[in-house]
Amino acid sequence: MDSTIVSTGTEGKTWGGGNQPLKSSYGKMMMWFFIVSDALTFSGFLAAYGFSRFKFIDYWPIADEVFTHVPFLHGQELPMIYVAFMTFVLIMSSVTMVLAVDAGHEMKKNKVIWYMFFTIIGGAIFVGSQAWEWATFIKGDYGAIQTNGGNILQFGEYKTVDGDLIFKRVAVEEFTTASETERVQHENKNGLWFVGESALPVFSVDDVYHGLESHPSILVRTQTINEDGEKTVLSREASLSQVKDNGKRYVKGANLEVNEYGAPLFADFFFFITGFHGFHVLSGVVINIIIFFNVIIGTYERRKNYEMVEKVGLYWHFVDLVWVFVFTFFYLV
């Protein structure tokens, strides 16, 4: 055995090995490396969002008008409230996580268990809220007409609220009745088995035009943002001619192809970035559950340190950190 040990004469010197200049364990260092690279991934996505938004800076949807819903408060416009709640839940679960790490440093197993439990609950609430937010966004609320050029025409009328004349959105369903149509959805089972199409729109453009004609107070609002930072409302004549000349199809809600709130790119980035973040939260919850059970069966008690809790905690805080930026760039700015 002696022959395999080589003495280099550099032991204890700076380059002799065994140094820990960063005074951090291997596992924690690797978690930091991962976090840095993941932060760059997210910033790539958010910068791409900024790129698209700057390209269409005068046509981009206003987030306050898109995300106005709160569960159980149907029909009320409460921008920001629900997403603020989600942000608070995530920050709160970050706090319970850091408290779990702190309890781990003091080797208090029961405290770690309880704090990790609350962290997991917070994460679950957040993912659930995000699913609800997606569902609401996909479902849509007012409906709109998409033009041949891909622009969105929304509808509304001026109403006096508390002495101020403000533009109130009107759902297309409220003024339009669907006409008889012979066109049926082409499904794979009826025709060529490899050809199908998605569900047909409820209304044709003509239906919407007739509805608009018979309701003189309703006007069209375009995507263009004016000097006051509001979407432009057209005159009655322009409204009618826009729908008649340029209307292509009725759209409701948002998906990867159309978006009743404006540019489809907005929906694409929303689904991709919040989806990617939501996936991080979901995997964070799963990793948290694994560590949670490890704490319960006493793995770290026997190991005599709770560094694993600290490492998963780093990941969990990172997810929170990313949300802080997503919140700003999707909902605030």
Partner: peptide, 21 residues
């Protein structure tokens, strides 16, 4: 972001080199 990184992720307690890295 600063307070999350510094106090929740304990960057305040790490060495200056790791923090800068």
């Amino acid at each position: 972001a600063y307070y999350i990184a510094w106090d929740f992720m304990h960057l305040r307690d790490e060495t200056k080199a790791l923090r800068r890295l």
